[in-house]
């Protein structure tokens, strides 16, 4: 946790406002009770706890909130959102931070999740359904680990659990959806 001196005291609510505008969640309701941090299964992997992350957003500490790995280690298990006594959907706040990082192309410690999301959304757009073999293949290729989970993959193919042929049916409905969404964002 970063400690700031008196000369640095200032609150910039731009980030909190953007989070509120996008998600409808008010981070200023957080009073740091730490229930989210104590229930978080992923906290030991994070630079800061979810509680600290909420404080960073309140104070507009953009670097700490966006560039560290904390938001990117959120497994979206919804435990924090479930237990928050102030009824803040913390997992939704974290999703919103991740969306801002990706949309604004901010450099952050995302550990391939940005890449994974992009590959997934491309499959959504052009296939309409998930194509596991293609997803794993391209992820491993782009991350330079072509043999990751090889033994597991071979087993799954043998058991008929992964299909090699993409499940293409009618891609036009999802392609149209994506293009209308793009129009809306502009």
């Amino acid at each position: 946790m970063k400690v700031i001196g008196p000369e640095e005291i200032r609150i910039d609510s731009t980030l909190a406002e953007e989070v509120a505008r996008r998600s409808g969640e008010n981070v200023f309701l957080c009073y740091q009770c730490r229930k989210c941090a104590s229930g978080c299964p992923s906290r030991t992997f994070m630079d800061s706890t979810p509680t600290e992350l909420m404080r960073y957003v309140q104070l507009g500490m953009i670097d700490e909130a966006m560039k560290g790995n904390t938001a990117w280690f959120c497994v979206s298990c919804q435990t924090c959102s479930t237990r928050c006594p102030q009824d803040i959907d913390i997992a939704h706040v974290i999703d919103t931070l991740r969306i801002i990082v990706q949309e604004k192309k901010i450099k952050a410690e995302t550990n391939n999740i940005r890449l994974f999301n992009r590959i997934w959304m491309i499959a959504m757009k052009y296939i309409g359904r998930m194509y596991e073999a293609g997803l794993v293949g391209s992820l491993n290729l782009f991350t330079g680990k072509p043999f990751k989970d090889m033994a597991l993959g071979v087993k799954m193919i043998r058991k008929g659990k992964i299909k090699m042929i993409p499940p293409i049916r009618n891609p036009f409905p999802t392609m149209k959806m994506f293009s209308r969404a793009k129009g809306l964002k502009k």
């Binding site: 979206s76 997934w120 959504m124 409905p173 964002k185």
Partner: peptide
């Protein structure tokens, strides 16, 4: 008939609008 993917985790992590539009579809 002709169901499409719900978007799962990647959609809600990177595109709020599509994460709602895909299930709604």
């Amino acid at each position: 008939s002709k169901w499409v993917c719900c978007g799962s985790s990647p959609a809600h992590q990177c595109d709020e609008l599509m994460s709602i539009a895909l299930p709604a579809k």
